[in-house]
């Protein structure tokens, strides 16, 4: 029974209470000296960093009567089959099967940063300015998840004023997402509804705990287009072929040794014959 969060872009007002709640809960410092960025027609730092686990992306999409200003909260997706976990050679990143949180243990980390390469969402960030740098990313408030049965949810979800973020059991959230999409279609005389009929994260890269529904396609909010194939599949494929490589290489090497040895033996024998 793993948890998830459903982000509903049609309820989000871009208020960024989630950003502040995350900072507060994780006691992350602010990054005041940065300049304002103006992507999407609003201000604010639009990347995760060692000090910022989540941020709100703003995008102006379309024109005229079709114009939309869309918002998406960006953070670790807590994949069901995390690429970072597979890439990590020391097991510092690990998905908790009960909560679904992909957690980072800096006690094991060796700073190789393979996780940063492996993540399709570009989430793990590095403390470039520190002498002893660690990887940093959203924790899914795993400490709060231990109290989920008592009603605790990740800090961002708790702070959201419009319930654009909904926390719960992943399977139930998927059902809820499809229900909302269908209800919107049913209420619309044209049958289209206000949602794009897709639950982003339901199946992408094998499924993620954080999922999105919205009135715009999530790729317009710069979330990557991804197939359903998990990132781990590449690693699995490579790893599963390893025995064959190993055995095959062994057989090949043995064969070459045998042939070489045999050739040597025959050459030696001929030499012997010539002598005698």
């Amino acid at each position: 029974m793993a948890y998830g969060v459903l982000c509903d872009g049609t309820r989000c007002i871009g208020c960024r209470a989630c950003s502040v709640a995350c900072k507060s809960w994780n006691k992350n410092p602010a990054d005041i000296d940065k300049k304002t960025s103006v992507e999407g027609g609003i201000e604010g730092k639009s990347v995760v960093s060692d000090k910022t686990f989540t941020f709100m992306r703003f995008k102006e999409i379309g024109d005229g009567d079709d114009f939309k200003w869309a918002f998406a909260k960006i953070q670790c997706m807590h994949c069901l089959k995390p690429g970072c976990e597979t890439a990590c050679i020391v097991g510092a990143l690990h998905r908790n099967k009960h909560t679904g949180a992909v957690s980072y243990d800096k006690g094991k980390c060796i700073g190789c940063r393979y996780c940063m390469v492996a993540c399709p969402f570009g989430i793990p960030t590095y403390e470039w300015e520190e002498r002893m740098p660690w990887i940093r990313k959203c924790t899914f408030c795993s400490d709060r998840l231990n109290e989920a049965e008592n009603g605790m949810a990740p800090a961002c979800v708790t702070a959201c004023p419009t319930r654009a973020l909904q926390f719960g059991e992943r399977g139930e959230l998927i059902e809820e997402a499809h229900k909302r999409i269908q209800a919107s279609k049913d209420a619309d005389p044209t049958g289209v509804g206000k949602y794009v009929d897709h639950v982003y994260g339901e199946e992408e890269v094998g499924g993620t705990a954080w999922m999105y529904i919205s009135n715009v396609d999530m790729t317009e909010l710069d979330l990557p287009w991804l197939s359903t194939e998990p990132v781990t599949k590449n690693a699995r494929t490579a790893m599963s072929l390893l025995p064959y490589y190993a055995t095959g290489m062994l057989a090949l090497m043995a064969g070459i040794y045998f042939i070489t040895k045999r050739k040597q033996k025959i050459a030696a024998g001929k030499h012997e014959e010539k002598k005698g």
Binding site: S19, E43, K45
Partner: peptide
Amino acid sequence: LPWLAELMPEMYVE
């Protein structure tokens, strides 16, 4: 307040 100041540090005009 640092966490709010960092969301919108600069005066702007739309």
